[in-house]
Design a binder for these strands. Sequence first.
DNA 1: TTGCTCAGCTTGTTGGTACAAGCTGATGCG
DNA 2: CGCATCAGCTTGTACCAACAAGCTGAGCAA
Lengths: 270, 270
Amino acid sequence: MYQQVARVRHDGGMSRQPKYRQVADALRREIDNGTHPPGARLPSESELSERFEASRNTVRSGLGLLVSQGLVTSSQGLGYEVAKHEVFELNASRFENLNFEQNGDAYSTDVTNAGRRPHQTFRVEILPAPAAVAERLKAEPESRTVLRFCHRFVDDTPWSTQATYYPSWLIDEAPRLAEPGDIEEGTTRYLADRGIEQVGYFDEISTRMPTPDEARLLEVGAGVPVLLWMRTGYSAERPIRCTITTLRGDLNRMNYEIGDQSARGEGAPR
Amino acid sequence: MYQQVARVRHDGGMSRQPKYRQVADALRREIDNGTHPPGARLPSESELSERFEASRNTVRSGLGLLVSQGLVTSSQGLGYEVAKHEVFELNASRFENLNFEQNGDAYSTDVTNAGRRPHQTFRVEILPAPAAVAERLKAEPESRTVLRFCHRFVDDTPWSTQATYYPSWLIDEAPRLAEPGDIEEGTTRYLADRGIEQVGYFDEISTRMPTPDEARLLEVGAGVPVLLWMRTGYSAERPIRCTITTLRGDLNRMNYEIGDQSARGEGAPR
DNA sequence: TTGCTCAGCTTGTTGGTACAAGCTGATGCG
DNA sequence: CGCATCAGCTTGTACCAACAAGCTGAGCAA
């Protein structure tokens, strides 16, 4: 009963948006039109509270909306900052394609070409296949698989994780897959040299908010979705591997070149 | 000073997670392990408040986390409900590909085959090209383009929006593009019949949280990202169209079949 | 100069209260 | 029986207060 009269007087019957949304919308407009450029600090909660004639909690609700949409980030003691995105292009149709020679790791060469510094941690495990992987590899659920796991960084910021599962029958033909350590010539090339050629693949792409684990590995704040890319590779006879890549949605864009690209030219998109 | 002592006593020094996170984590675990199956209602805020010995505000913070991650939805008067996802597979490599006959609209046939009921609204506009589109069509910024816009539903829930831009030079060769109303045989077929064949395309895929406009059109709650799919189609000589599709991230998965798929078989993934 | 401490800013967490607004089922009137 | 109303549940919005915790720069001590 105590502030209700005041609120009605403030609104004056104009907007039917709740106040915390008005705050969010006003700030979003200011971000869009460049009043607050990427990287800039927003006014503090108490300043905004004064400007919008709202309590600090209400302003926080509005800012929370923007955070949950990935437009701004917040950190204790520092304030709110407008998020800036530099997206990295990932060419999925050249990836793992032996027609485009890229000795070894496609990711490293792509990143280096973009003038950034790549870095990755790597490990190999032997473990039962997760259900989704077993299904795609046409293997028994829980059957043994080799997991080659990669955690990738660009300029020391986490970029993506990549988990590739190989079915156990493949190890007999390509034993180095199960050994720790890199395969310098690239696993695709290594497999091809041993008579196992990836002649086709099936890509599935989806998006969702990160699990807490993913949020930790990729260091994404609230409001940044992840891009999930699942590739099942086939030889002429059967599936040979399944790769699950988790990409930070704010930093990555995937693309596919399909069919005749001669009319696209060089400087086209990007 | 008034509740600090009580809080310290409660924690007992065990977890260093704030209480609202503990609430969210506990509920997330219960959702994951099936205690609260998809579609079920969660206990009310006041019940949870009692169970976790936290104030309603604190419980709300925790529930807010889950909502912003898309795990649960809330509606006033009803309560919180565990979100359920039925994802729809969209085959991007067959889409607009004349080798796979699909008379007319690929979307309608796909949806009908899945046993669902498709429905769409449609409009045609002539307007200056947005910067991103002009760049991809190799047209002057602000040059005139025809926009064919489609808002798609499945069983009356909004599914995606699709905006296709055609450069103005194309209208002379294919005037029906600029007229309102469907093109029954499909625009790809219509263009091919008039000597304009799409021989290749360049797809770009990204994800982000929806803008307020998109959230309204797609009726997505907080915590559901959108999948952005931009396809630039080329004839042998030049770009002929640019399609921007916005998909609800919780309801869609895209896939590409590339290379030899003979080893994939039928019952493979899905 | 170097390095430490601390005041004073910031956001983060948690409690409290009050009222608006949406949904549902029971109740009772016509 | 049919329908309107309302009590009693739910979440939504908005305010207040207090304290925790992270960062920065001023200022003092070695």
